[in-house]
């Protein structure tokens, strides 16, 4: 279950997966708030990833740690149950939400069997009409365009 480093990478890989397996791949977005560590209930307060070796030896040390100020996490997961492919991306930044939903919208296109086109106007015309011929336009080209454009955006935000 690899976590990809950037949303852009996640988009690129997910696009490829969706193009290969459009009818079985699903995307799950999980927005979760972790519980505040509770001194009276150390087992629950523990983050899931802690090693099992520490469970019995020193449960008292856990409550002493200051609770993290940010407990909310947003995790995107693309999963194809047939091939078992899983792609994940996780963030804690509110600023990324709207862009990530935009990405979800973009990924919905190959999912629906629509070609990936940036010009919305052109697509609307095609979609409203017959729509029967449009899926055949699908190719690898748009994926590359998407990758280039998104990459620049990311740099523009300039996070340190």
């Amino acid at each position: 279950m690899p976590y990809l480093e950037t949303a852009q990478q996640w988009l690129t890989q997910s696009t490829l997966l969706l193009q290969a397996r459009p009818s079985t791949t699903r995307i799950t977005t999980k927005y979760t708030i972790k519980p505040i560590p509770d001194p009276s209930n150390p087992d629950r307060s523990k983050p899931r990833k802690t090693k099992p070796s520490t469970t019995s030896s020193e449960p008292a040390s856990v409550p002493t740690q200051a609770p993290e100020p940010i407990r909310a996490v947003l995790i995107l997961k693309t999963y194809d149950p047939v091939s078992g492919t899983t792609l994940k991306y996780s963030t804690t930044k509110a600023a990324e939400v709207s862009r990530l939903i935009q990405i979800l919208g973009r990924l919905a296109r190959p999912m629906a069997g629509l070609p990936e086109v940036k010009e919305d106007v052109v697509m609307l015309d095609g979609g409203e009409g017959e729509g029967a011929h449009t899926p055949l336009v699908e190719s690898a080209k748009p994926a590359q365009n998407v990758a280039g454009g998104g990459g620049k955006k990311k740099k523009g935000k300039g996070k340190k």
Binding site: T28, T29, K30, Y31, T32, I33, I36, R71, L107
Partner: peptide
């Protein structure tokens, strides 16, 4: 979800 101190919301999309 906001009424509690923790919890999750899952959103899924598929064909």
């Amino acid at each position: 979800r906001r009424q509690k101190d923790h919890g999750s919301v899952y959103l899924t999309q598929k064909r």
